[in-house]
């Protein structure tokens, strides 16, 4: 069984704030980490490999330093990693990102299953997985809470559909995105870390990817465009009501106005 797990390196902190005076973004720390949601996708992959054997390749699109995150996946249990890194991928929206990943997956070759995290902590869209599946022409299941069965031809998964859990049998190859807390992720192994060569992760630039259409990558390949960014309004207003008889009335008014009552 050949499994591909998609991962992303995300900022270590989500505290990016806009300075209300200058309108400039304030950065809080430069550390980066593996997207926490991806840990559940990785763990699901590792367990399938332990049960059915096979090989796990992790893939990511990102800046050169994202190689660190891919190496971390190898320390945890992946066999190797692939990083797609090229200036041509910058400014990619969901569609351009999933297109680049598609060409990367095709470069890896034959696979049985692709596993993604539910979403990332920086983009939060939860959309790259399903878009990637469509680009590859395979079916997908989002929000998978458990993989119940797998053989060479089919996989049975249970998905979270908000009000119900649905168990479904899907034909391989397909793509699944794993719900948070679906399993307990393992930590990177020191033993593996010492045994891993940096060559376990290969870096492909746009040139290395066969049949890559540059027009569909990065900013060029993104139908959506960011027109502007601005600080949220809600953070600004702070009102203090001091003691007085009408405190409950004021609270009532606020709750009514905001439609909570």
């Amino acid at each position: 069984m050949k499994i591909i797990v998609c991962v992303k390196q995300v900022p270590g902190t989500s505290n990016v704030e806009v300075d209300p005076v200058t309108g400039v973004l304030k950065r809080d720390g430069l550390c980066a980490k593996l997207n926490p949601y991806d840990l559940f996708a990785l763990e699901t992959g590792f367990r399938l490999k332990e049960k059915s054997g096979g090989e796990i390749t992790t893939i990511s699109m990102g800046p050169p330093q994202a190689k660190e995150s891919l190496l971390e996946t190898v320390y945890m249990g992946a066999d190797n990693g692939v990083l797609l890194s090229d200036r041509a991928f910058a400014g990619a929206d969901v569609q351009a990102t999933s297109y680049a990943l598609k060409t990367g997956v095709e470069k890896i070759g034959k696979y049985d299953l692709i596993i993604c995290g539910k979403q990332t902590t920086d983009g939060d869209t939860a959309q790259v997985g399903p878009e990637l599946a469509e680009q590859l022409g395979i079916e997908h299941a989002a929000n998978v809470i458990s993989v119940d069965e797998i053989d060479g031809e089919y996989i049975t998964v249970t998905v979270n559909l908000d009000s119900v859990y649905q168990t479904q049998k899907m034909k391989l190859p397909c793509l699944i995105t794993i719900e948070k807390d679906a399993c307990t992720p393992r930590l990177p192994s020191f033993k593996r870390k010492f045994a891993t060569s940096p060559d376990a992760v290969v870096v492909y630039t746009a040139k290395d990817l066969d049949n890559l259409d540059a027009e569909r990558c990065g900013l060029k390949g993104s139908p959506t465009q960011v027109e502007r960014i601005f600080p949220p309004e809600a953070g600004g207003d702070r009102v203090i009501f001091n003691s007085g008889d009408e405190l409950s009335d004021k609270l009532f008014d606020i709750l009514s106005e905001k439609k909570f009552l």
Partner: peptide
């Protein structure tokens, strides 16, 4: 980018 910034798209 984590929720403290709004993007207009």
């Amino acid at each position: 980018f984590g929720g403290n910034i709004m993007a207009q798209i």
